[in-house]
Write a protein that binds this DNA or RNA. Sequence first.
DNA 1: CGATAACTTGACTATCATCAATACCAGTGG
DNA 2: CCACTGGTATTGATGATAGTCAAGTTATCG
Lengths: 261, 261
Amino acid sequence: MTQLSRKIRPEDEVEGLDAPALRRLNALGPLDAADRERLRAAMAEARIVPVRHPILTLGRPMPESQILLQGWAARVRILPDGRRQFMSFYLPGDVIGRVHHALPIASATVLALTECVLCTAPAAPAGSSLEQVYAVGEALDEAYLLGHVVQLGRLNAQERIGDFLLEIYERLSLAGLTVGGSFEMPLTQEMLADALGLTPVHVNRMIQQARRDGDLMWKSGRVLLRDPDRTARTIGRLRPQVTGAQPEGGTDTTSEPSRPA
Amino acid sequence: MTQLSRKIRPEDEVEGLDAPALRRLNALGPLDAADRERLRAAMAEARIVPVRHPILTLGRPMPESQILLQGWAARVRILPDGRRQFMSFYLPGDVIGRVHHALPIASATVLALTECVLCTAPAAPAGSSLEQVYAVGEALDEAYLLGHVVQLGRLNAQERIGDFLLEIYERLSLAGLTVGGSFEMPLTQEMLADALGLTPVHVNRMIQQARRDGDLMWKSGRVLLRDPDRTARTIGRLRPQVTGAQPEGGTDTTSEPSRPA
DNA sequence: CGATAACTTGACTATCATCAATACCAGTGG
DNA sequence: CCACTGGTATTGATGATAGTCAAGTTATCG
């Protein structure tokens, strides 16, 4: 690890600062007392990664996997000519850097988008509730990644923004980080553009249109979705669910040509 | 499973038809004799899924994970209005439907793009070489998925096609399914469009331009890449490598704005 | 309160989508 | 052997979505 990590400050240790992460993990599958204690112990040993610093670096050996306790991080790839693409985001309660094979090499750079508080992910004994939680978390990660592909491939700018904000809203809800329909959104429009495969200018225009249409409020790092359900329906967003069957996205999947926005 | 699976026909069992899959698996990490035997046994019990039939269905319970022995399959999502997006492809030697958590529900529909020959993936004893191979395979899958996100988000039509064909070329090479720079490509331009987030018409135009530029030959289901390395370099494609460190995609990943094609 | 980053806006362009024919090609049945 | 058929590929004309360039206008934060 190269980042300038430093010990957590005393003022960060006040009660409940790691509650969102804990709550999120517990939402993936109920944790028993033993695992809860494991997590608490791990969280006591947290550390901070400053904004814009890497948490993992592509091609570099990976340390143990980590739990993000506070802040936002993202997997990013930068092309030789400077184009940048965020591939996925990590929110409080997400596990970063799980590997199952012998070679612990980071397959992507993970960047702290805000100041991040992290702790080592405690090892999960075979058959433990924590092991289930990790597995479910990984499945969710993949589901979001698949969703991102659909977003980039087949949604227009407007839909991408709506879909993205809905996803974030859902994920933050699991951690108890939403208030009403609103939540903290530390991303700049430029970062949003790099997640959605658009330019900052175009993102800006679409956001303003959404504002005019009354779908959205976005002021000083806080987003309010006016009618999440309606938006979700118009996009046909299917929310990943680990706890039951999903509504089918389309119909028979057997045929059907390509017909972009 | 709903597909009309039927027992493999005698004429499919001639020597070596499953060789590509075996070769691909072995390329991920050397298999010892015991695991090789497990695979051989599993492959003896293969079955066929006809073209356009589902191998897994979104939201439905999943059977054991399977190894694709012959043919192409893809994870697909279809939006309510008919837009279709292929999220990833399965080639011979790929494992379909691994799950690690208790709830075996398919997170996407997997469609047979050609007639597919499949077998059950033999269970991998803890610590076996096969377990490593499965894990590496999964890591590769994710790497390709990440690549797909970058492709859709930041590459233009021309680059997407080049990058896609390069990926397929690399993957088929591992299974020994390439001859010189050429390989079988059973996808129609329409399917390609649904993978790359484009329209069939535009894909067609870009392909023809690539042909005129001498980058490409594509005739009756067979593709020949003229100069894979040059193409790879101009796109800045980074090939996922499980066996060593990767060339860094860009520079410091610390800063840099968004600047699409 | 000045400086830097973030956001807005306008004018113009380009890439890609849409619509609509037409050409091609393999397999089918007469 | 050949017309017929359905899927696939190709082409042209036109339009819309999103990108580019460049100049402001706010915020935000030492």
